[in-house]
Simulated assay, not measured.
Amino acid sequence: MQFVRLSHKVLEQLKEKGYNILTSNNPVSHENPVWYPESVPDVWDYLIGLDVRKISVIKEPNILVIQDALDNIRDEDLRGVVLV
């Protein structure tokens, strides 16, 4: 396993492997966040579940939905590295 620069190409490869979100414990403002791929059964249910647990969770991860990033974020605007 290694860290590679986040890009559309990497997102497509992760999507093909069944991953649908990336999570990071770095703040949103971090210049070079570290992302970890995850596969959840239903992205919407996962996000709603995080919102419900927000009251009891000290710190929730930052989440990047892979399909949303592919559809709405230009390749040059993606930041960080991802473990592949």
Score class of each variant (00 low, 15 high):
Leu47Trp: 01
Arg79Gly: 03
Leu70Gln: 03
Gln2Phe: 02
Leu6Trp: 08
Val43Cys: 05
Leu22Lys: 05
Ile73Trp: 00
Leu22Ile: 07
Glu31Phe: 13
Arg5Pro: 00
Pro37Arg: 04
Trp44Asn: 12
Arg53Leu: 14
Leu78Lys: 04
Pro37Trp: 09
Lys54Pro: 06
Asn25His: 01
Pro33Ala: 07
Val40Phe: 08
Leu70Lys: 05
Ser24Asp: 10
Tyr19Val: 01
Val10Asp: 01
Gln13Ile: 08
Asp71Val: 02
Leu6Asn: 07
Asp68Cys: 04
Glu12Asn: 12
Leu11Val: 01
Trp35His: 01
Leu47Thr: 04
Tyr19Arg: 03
Asp75His: 01
Val28Ile: 15
Val84Gln: 13
Pro33Ser: 09
Glu16Tyr: 02
Ile73Arg: 03
Ser7His: 04
Ser56Gly: 14
Leu6Gln: 07
Pro27Phe: 07
Asp68Glu: 15
Val57Leu: 11
Val10Trp: 00
Asp77Ile: 02
Asp45Lys: 13
Ile73Cys: 04
Tyr36Gln: 11
Asp51Asn: 11
Ile73Tyr: 02
Val34Arg: 10
Leu22Arg: 01
Trp35Ser: 07
Val10Thr: 12
Asn20Thr: 01
Val4Asn: 06
Ser29Cys: 07
Glu38Ala: 12
Val10Glu: 06
Pro27Glu: 10
Glu16Arg: 12
Glu38Lys: 15
Ile66Asn: 03
Val65Ala: 04
Leu14Cys: 11
Asp75Cys: 09
Ile63Tyr: 10
Val52Ile: 15
Ser56Gln: 10
Val84Leu: 15
Ala69Ser: 10
His30Trp: 11
Lys17Gly: 00
Val81His: 05
Glu31Asn: 11
Asp75Asn: 15
Val4Trp: 00
Ile55Phe: 10
Lys9Trp: 00
Val10Ile: 15
Ile66Ser: 02
Glu12Trp: 08
Thr23Ile: 15
Asn72Tyr: 05
Val4Gln: 14
Ile55Asp: 12
Leu64Val: 14
Asp68Gln: 09
Met1Arg: 02
Asp45Thr: 10
Val81Ile: 09
Lys9Phe: 02
Asp42Ala: 03
Pro61Arg: 09
Thr23Trp: 03
Leu70Val: 09
Asp45Ala: 12
His30Ser: 14
Tyr46Lys: 07
Ser29Arg: 09
Val82Glu: 08
Ile55Gly: 00
Asp42Trp: 02
Ile73Met: 09
Ser7Leu: 06
Ser24Gln: 04
Ile48Met: 11
Glu38Cys: 11
Asp68Gly: 01
Ile63Trp: 06
Lys54Trp: 05
Gln67Phe: 03
His30Lys: 10
Ser24Gly: 06
Tyr19Lys: 08
Arg5Asp: 13
Val82Pro: 00
Asn26Ser: 11
Tyr36Gly: 03
Tyr46Ile: 01
Glu60Val: 08
Glu31Trp: 10
Gln2Arg: 13
Gln2Lys: 13
Asn62Ile: 12
Asn72His: 09
Ala69Gln: 03
Asn62Arg: 14
Asp51Met: 13
